[in-house]
Amino acid sequence: MRAYTPKDDVQKKAYYSDRYYVSPQVPKLEVETDEVFAKDLEAIKSKFEVKEAFIQVEQLVIYINANDIYGVLELMRDELEYTQLSEMSAIDWLAKDNTFEIFYQMLSMNKRKRIRVKYFIQNGQAVDSVEKLFRSADWSEREMFDMFGIEANGHPFMKRILMPYDWHGYPLLKTYPLEGDEHAAWYEVDKIFGKEARDVIGPELRDTAKVDRYDSERFARLGYEVPKGTKITGDEPRNEESYQEEGGVFLIKKFDKKDSVVVDDPQR
């Protein structure tokens, strides 16, 4: 059973403070426990250096050299029947040892097996594009560049894919603040109105639960609405909520709730 933690002001503070928390690993098995994976690993080891290999959650994980990635994936696609690259991206280990871990998730529909190919690169180093082997790597590598700033050599269109082209910073880095840096906070104001409009528009309100009932510029109390900018004293008259004026509207029949009929026949 999990240890009890007091939850009095649990919404006010983060449930853990370690930004670089690494979750515990599930057990790793020897590759020899699965004969299909053992054969695949032999075929890869005969041509390329494999630094580490193990089976984790019924998937083979191999670590290779960064320069071998095109050759390894070509071998796996053409000879080992791993015909799909389901996904690829990077993991940020910059705080630990200034490296990125790049992973390629391979799927074989014939063998019904998955292999994850991994390698490490230094910060600032580029990777080899595998877009010529798998078309799915086209957008994945662009997303990796967009989110981490890792370029792929040989990619036909190495541009940002999700963020705007004039964006600064790489949002999936662990050092990137969730609410954005200064450029992100003022991005739309700078672009549309210009930097001089920052004073007029004002900073972003990040506390969406904040309601100031004495601020009639931005808030209105339902049923006690006052004109914008009025100083609120607390004894405002009650306004009846209605969607038509008292005297009725020209050419429009007034809806009277007392005359309305509620149809409660389920077979209507």
């Binding site: 609410e179 739309e188 104001v189 309100l205 969406t208």
Partner: peptide, 22 residues
């Protein structure tokens, strides 16, 4: 809706915090 009003639950770098900023 909440997102257009204040940014809503998307208190992130990529969401405009209220369409009335534009």
């Amino acid at each position: 809706g909440s997102c257009a009003n204040t940014g809503g639950m998307f208190n992130t770098y990529a969401t405009v915090q209220g369409v009335d900023r534009i």
